[in-house]
Amino acid sequence: MSLFTDPFLWTALSVGVLGAVLCTLAGRFVLMRGMTFVSIALAEAAAAGAALGMLIHMPPDIAAIVAVLGAIILFRHRGRAGDGAIGILYAGAAAVTLMIISLHPRLEASGVDLLAGNLLYSTVRDGWFMAGAFAVIAPVHILYRKAFLFTAIDPDTARTQGLPARVWEVLLMVTIGLSIAVTIKLAGVLYVFAAMIIPVMAALRMANRVRSVTLVSLVVSVGGVLAGFSASVEWNLPTSPAVILAWCSVYLIARIVSRRSA
């Protein structure tokens, strides 16, 4: 099997790359806003939504989007529960996903793995769905990056300057949630979470400008997908973990090199 000759691998690779780029673009704002824990809770909520969708014969992508948007509304009204509410959502959503899959083996038999992902099961329809989602979400993150940056790092000052910071915050959360939701069914919780955090953290070790951090994180993100896919095909390894380990390797190398040069 060759990565560059089999059409179904091209589909899987395209879904993996587009999903990783979407999550990495969102991940910059996740880290700026200090929302790492929120992001994995959203990923679990999306997984639970996808599982529930498959159970009730609803398109899992749509069910994941509904679940993520519901979780975002919950976060914005969590009041005194604070981080505790995020923890409850994370654990509860993970439990729902595991329960549904264990009670309905046909989901597992169909190749769905919402935790570790199974990109090789991507269909052409999945590829088009991901391309459509990418065409909508990525331009929003790029066009409105300055407003997102300002409201992510200093929402109070943004509001005193007359910026509708709450509107930007909601839009940012929704686009982060959508990035997660459209990637989750095929890539799984681990892949989505890793794609948001690790390439950006690696880029922060290698770049000394915010713009460079964005570019380097996207290069790391795509490079990790290509390396992980190649390793997966060559040595018959599970795809998502192979990609995640490729990202982790880049981060570790960047960390060692940046420490030595410092």
Binding site: K146, L163, V210
Partner: peptide, 22 residues
Amino acid sequence: GLHDLFPFTVREMVDMGRMRGR
């Protein structure tokens, strides 16, 4: 409370001050 994870330059940080609502 200043953000220090990302390497914003002085110019980039100051530039945020010109963003207005309208």
